[in-house]
Design a protein around this nucleic acid. Structure first.
Lengths: 235, 235
DNA sequence: CACGCCAGTTAGACGACTCTAATATAACCG
DNA sequence: CGGTTATATTAGAGTCGTCTAACTGGCGTG
């Protein structure tokens, strides 16, 4: 009896985890998935055979897990719901550092119908509040992952594109400093020995702890020292 | 390990079912609960002992189940979430005949924090789109169940108070005729042998099938034939 | 080559929730 | 009083998802 596997919350969480690991080029191994979902390796092992039986994923020869077309479609649908909910909640006044946690639960509770309604209500947004792209209803889609701020050279102009939604406290902190998708920064200086990265944001010089420089991603546009011009700006 | 019983979706569904049966004076027996939740009687039996162990419900001597103070508080919280979600969805444009089904799932996915935010965003509404009262954050509360339309005498003025959210199609039908909480009707005539109830709504004379007269509840205010005045009108 | 480490799987168990089938209790009626 | 009927519970099983403990298999290094 029972349960469609397909639509179980647990399965959706696994699909999403595999999708996310895959997206940023991290290995989609048993242990990585286990770490991502905070479950034991055997649990993952068991679930992987079930996903394989259901035609949602298959294991490739290099010990990695790969989503099938079907699994990929489903994973993308979950991500779509997640990011639409985040955008929606932000729109009605929930602070951007709180929307992720709520969406983590709500993503499993939205019907396809309601998801589309929310999408329409929002005017078919392309990005969630953290700058993450919202997969379209259907059609092609691939995520780009711009470089983290820590990779930006001194003196660079840097336009924030995405901010990791993982750490709520960091998000709130960044928000207070006015750092969000679209914000232009100038990378001033790296203090040595794990010291802060100094950047200028909105005319103010602020110090960013090392951890934050991993969470903020964006596009570097080298400043042209002659004209002060800068290259293309994303979005 | 695991599972808090308290916060399981299944438990919340049981608590809500008991609450609803209790509210409208229906017997809260094993078989009624089973019917309400569409599960077998043994499943209910098992769950009732678990609820009793958890201090959420107890069985009284007359074969009825009674929620404890704790269980009642929890049930009311679930109902509050449900009705706030309904109100919220209606507010952002989801048709009133669809909100119930969505809320049935979403009610389990809202954090206390988000629930309160939605409540504030809506301006602390007292009724959901079907006219059902929204339990307050805390404090006293009891549901009134006004009489169904079928009990209204011919010639009566009748103000719709609540419309059952159970039957989506009926709800859509009633909506199309302009019948919703607050709508004043005049009861014209009952055709015999299960024939329709004729009412005037917004100046138009419409026929309501027998089933609909159970779903619409409200307050009868006898028309005073001399003045055309009518009695108090609820909200 | 052998040893040990690390990743992954299998084995066995448990809890939550459900079911069907069988049993017990109570209530009603000839 | 005895029998039927309705209602509730117990018994036994199955699924989903998790765990720990034990086993397997590859790979690097002494």
């Amino acid at each position: 009896m029972c349960c469609d596997l397909e639509h179980s919350e647990t399965v959706e969480d696994y699909l999403k985890a595999i999708y996310h690991l895959d997206c940023r080029g991290e290995p989609t191994t048993t242990s990585e998935i286990a770490r991502a979902l905070d479950v034991s390796a055997p649990s993952v092992s068991t679930m992987m055979s079930r996903l394989a039986d259901a035609g949602l994923a298959e294991r490739s020869d290099d010990r990695q897990v790969r989503l099938t077309g079907h699994g990929m479609r489903h994973a993308r649908e979950v991500v779509r719901r997640h990011r639409l909910v985040e955008t929606f909640l932000a729109e009605v006044g929930v602070p951007w550092d709180e929307v992720h946690a709520e969406a983590e639960v709500l993503e499993h509770a939205l019907s396809a119908n309601l998801t589309d309604r929310i999408d329409d209500w929002l005017g078919r947004p392309e990005r969630d509040p953290h700058g993450d792209p919202i997969p379209p209803r259907d059609g092609d889609y691939a995520e780009e992952w711009p470089a983290p701020l820590r990779a930006a050279p001194r003196g660079a102009r840097f336009v924030v594109d995405r901010v990791s939604d993982r750490d709520s406290a960091a998000l709130r902190y960044l928000g207070e400093m006015g750092i969000r998708p679209g914000t232009p920064l100038v990378v001033e200086d790296w203090d040595p020995f794990g010291g802060p990265l100094w950047v200028t944001v909105g005319g103010e010089r602020v110090a960013l702890g090392e951890q934050l420089t991993h969470l903020v991603r964006g596009v570097v546009a080298e400043r042209n020292p002659r004209t002060g011009d800068h290259g293309e700006v994303s979005t």
